[in-house]
Write a protein that binds this DNA or RNA. Structure first.
Lengths: 221, 221
DNA sequence: GTCTATATCGCGATAGAC
DNA sequence: GTCTATCGCGATATAGAC
């Protein structure tokens, strides 16, 4: 692994475990096993490191919203996509903890992130439209209402891990699933009848796995 | 105004306009028109200042969830409460920008905030139950589902202003209203028929009676 | 590319006069 | 209560040898 790369990985780990303010370039260099001078040979300053990490995160997001083109998508595809999304959010959680502070300190980061976010939101809209096409979601009578729900899901997704952390709960991969479920709850009223049936089945299965000696409880209409 | 108080107000303003990391105790003292030494006479350190501000925010939250006891509550009461909530969130927005970083740096702040959040969430649940009682919300068949929606609204409320800011839009009082509307959208499927009609009237929108067996409302072309 | 050594700066915090 | 003066520290960043 190149030194440039090791710096990024080390920094990401340190940032995730502390705050960007507490992690100095000296700390990063030490943890990466190189000298401070060497670190500055590769990156002009800490902000440049953060920006480089952000680019990597952006690349990873690109792989989140992919859907199969050879078949109709189902509710399970939504679920898997959400899981992928949360996994990336988890890997770069430090960024979402301090997002606005970081953006304020570095206008360049701010601009770049706005571009990224715009693109991501666009991808997400396309994503949901595909599910409308394939009959997972009801066809929205009011597009602005539909967009509002997407925005709501967006806000929840991006802030779920932070919410867990502020509640004093340990932030573990298991919590990612709770976030996925929460988003499902918000989307539920907009699912088609067919998708709702699928969901009941899925949830029953999950329930079975969690409490294997009990029977799944299916909600009665 | 006492010096102690002026320090808090000045600090709040500075924090809102920059980040807590950029605002040093020297800056606060200077902006408050006192010496650094004097500042340290009143507060032992910057963290204590932030904690004091947080206590003030907590007090302000206490006034948000009050509801009239002499009459039934309506959808308008939800709206007004949300507006009050957003107003407080706006006044102390610096805290929500850096919440987790601040909590990590100061365990005492972290503990206190968790108490506060627990209490606030409790208040919010009571709040919504009142609206169920008074027929604004449908009686939930599944309490856990209801709680999930409340959690969703909580996450959205606390992060809406940050979302606006990260999108690069100016954060103005007008944006507060958009946040209120977004939360309404999420709650909409859980409103009673009666409340839905009220909402349509409030907004001056057409009420599509597709699922209504109540009095017809004039449709606009 | 990588190191050591060092310059510079400002922050947090305290001492002591008034 | 308020000020001035100051110390210690650690962070960012650079210079120059190898």
């Amino acid at each position: 692994m190149t030194t440039k790369r090791r710096i990024l990985d080390t920094a990401t780990t340190l940032f995730n475990n502390a705050t960007t303010g507490e992690v100095s370039t000296n700390h990063i260099a030490e943890a990466a096993g190189i000298s401070s001078g060497n670190l500055y040979y590769h990156y002009p300053n800490k902000e440049a490191i953060i920006r480089a990490i952000l680019e990597q995160m952006f690349d990873d997001f690109g792989e989140v919203w992919v859907l199969p083109h050879d078949r109709k998508v189902t509710l399970t595809d939504v679920q898997n996509t959400m899981s992928r999304l949360f996994e990336v959010l988890w890997r770069f959680r430090f960024f979402y903890r301090e997002q606005l502070a970081l953006m304020r300190r570095d206008p360049e980061l701010s601009t770049r992130h706005q571009q990224m976010q715009g693109q991501r939101i666009g991808e997400q809209e396309q994503f949901f439209l595909r599910f409308v096409e394939d009959g997972v979601f009801k066809v929205p009578e009011d597009p602005s209402h539909f967009r509002a729900i997407i925005t709501a899901c967006w806000v929840i997704a991006n802030n779920w891990l932070s919410f867990v952390e502020t509640s004093g709960e340990a932030v573990e991969p298991a919590q990612l699933e709770r976030g996925v479920n929460l988003i499902f709850r918000v989307m539920e009223p907009y699912l088609s009848e067919a998708a709702l049936a699928t969901q009941a089945t899925l949830r029953g299965e999950r329930y079975d796995q969690a409490h294997s000696n009990q029977t799944a409880v299916a909600k009665q209409p």
